[in-house]
Simulated assay, not measured.
Amino acid sequence: MPAPRSDADWLAAAARLAARGRPLSRPNPAVGCLIVREGRVVGRGWTREGGRPHAEAAALEQAGDRARGADVYVTLEPCAHLSQRGPACADLLADAAPARVVIGCEDPDPRTAGEGIARLRAAGIAVSLVPLPAVEDSLAGYLTRARFGRPHVTLKLAMSLDGCVALANGESRWITGEAARAHVHASRARADAILVGGETWRADKPRLDVRVPGLGERSPKRVLLSRGVAPDGVKVINSPGAIARLDDVQYLYVEGGAETGASFLAADLVDRLEIYRAPIVIGDGLRAVGGIGLEALALAHGRWTLVEEARLGSDRFAAYRRTRQGET
Rank of each mutant, 00 (worst) to 15 (best):
L286Q: 11
Y251D: 14
P213F: 01
I237K: 09
V234A: 00
Y276P: 06
A258E: 11
P240S: 05
A296P: 09
V249M: 05
L265Y: 06
R227W: 03
A258H: 04
V212D: 05
S219L: 11
R277I: 15
L294D: 04
G285E: 04
R277A: 15
R277V: 15
L225A: 03
L225H: 04
L224C: 05
I275G: 08
Q250T: 10
K221Q: 14
A288F: 05
L294F: 14
A266G: 14
G261T: 00
L294K: 02
L246F: 01
G233P: 10
P220N: 07
E255P: 04
G257I: 04
L273M: 08
R287Y: 11
G257Y: 02
K235V: 15
G216Y: 11
V289W: 05
T260P: 02
I282D: 00
G256K: 02
E217S: 15
Y276E: 13
R277E: 13
P220V: 10
L286W: 10
I280V: 15
V210G: 02
E274V: 15
I275M: 13
I292W: 05
K235H: 13
G256I: 03
K221C: 10
A298I: 13
I282Y: 02
E259G: 09
P279V: 04
Q250M: 06
G233M: 14
D284P: 09
R272H: 12
R287V: 14
V212E: 10
E274T: 13
G214E: 07
D248H: 07
G228P: 00
D271A: 10
I282H: 03
V281Q: 04
Y276M: 13
R227E: 02
I237D: 07
I282L: 06
A296R: 15
V223W: 07
E217R: 15
R222I: 08
G256V: 02
R287G: 11
L294Y: 09
G233D: 10
S263G: 08
Y253S: 02
I282M: 01
F264Q: 06
G216V: 13
V270I: 13
S219A: 11
I275F: 10
A296T: 11
A298G: 12
L224T: 03
R272L: 14
I282Q: 01
L269N: 03
A244Q: 05
G283N: 06
L252N: 00
D271M: 04
D209E: 07
Y253W: 13
D232L: 10
N238I: 13
R227C: 03
A230G: 01
V212M: 08
L286F: 13
L294N: 05
I237R: 09
A288G: 08
G256D: 03
P279W: 08
G285K: 03
L269S: 06
A296Q: 14
S226N: 01
L246G: 01
L297P: 12
L294P: 06
V229H: 10
D268V: 08
D284S: 14
A242Y: 04
A266M: 08
A296G: 08
A266V: 11
V281P: 02
G233I: 14
V281R: 06
G291W: 13
K221R: 14
A267K: 05
R211W: 08
R272Y: 09
L265R: 03
P220M: 07
P279K: 04
V229F: 09
D248E: 09
R218V: 09
D248N: 08
V281A: 07
L294E: 03
